[in-house]
């Protein structure tokens, strides 16, 4: 008789513990979702020789000529009251070609365009575009300039 009551009590306590843990986890997830809503993520980088009004690249390429203006279209997801996007262009062994920054306040998917040109022509070689979001590296794209 005592054994049966003790077994029932233990079963009830175990069930209560499991239910309590499940409820706690659900609350943690809700908090995480709220935090994630205020950050942005780079989903895509396209390079090309021209950009349209919606900041998309017409003919995507990663090979350019010395006299080209090089456009980069960066697609981001998410929203933030202020997010700093930085485009860092480097040449060959890491020599910094140019850095430019835009601080945006996206409310959803967005496209941000950066472009660089060099009046006397780009030296041939391999280049890299690194995109940083709020100072942290988010994505890179390699390209080359060939004569």
């Amino acid at each position: 008789m005592y054994k049966t009551r003790l077994g029932t009590a233990m079963l009830v306590l175990t069930l209560a513990s499991v239910l309590s843990t499940a409820c706690t986890k659900r609350n943690d997830n809700a908090g995480t979702t709220g935090t994630a809503g205020s950050v942005i993520r780079v989903s895509r980088i396209d390079l090309g020789r021209s950009v349209s009004a919606d900041k998309t690249i017409g003919g995507s390429t990663d090979s350019f000529k010395p006299n080209d203006t090089i456009y980069a279209s960066i697609a981001t997801e998410g929203s933030a009251p202020a997010a700093t996007l930085k485009a860092r262009w480097t040449y060959q062994d890491g020599q910094v070609v140019n850095e430019s920054t835009q601080t945006i306040a996206p409310t959803g998917d967005a496209r941000t365009e950066f472009h660089v040109s060099k009046p006397d022509g780009w030296p041939a070689g391999k280049y890299k575009l690194e995109v940083l979001v709020n100072g942290s590296s988010a994505a890179t794209k390699d390209f080359e300039v060939a004569p």
């Binding site: 202020a82 485009a87 835009q102």
Partner: peptide
């Protein structure tokens, strides 16, 4: 001899609205 990139011109724009006072961090 490293190439000279001091005359590189740059710019940009976005479909997202600009955040106020971008330089203050």
């Amino acid at each position: 001899a490293k190439p000279d990139f001091s005359n590189v011109q740059s710019g940009g724009s976005s479909t997202a609205p600009a955040a106020p006072e971008p330089e203050v961090t």
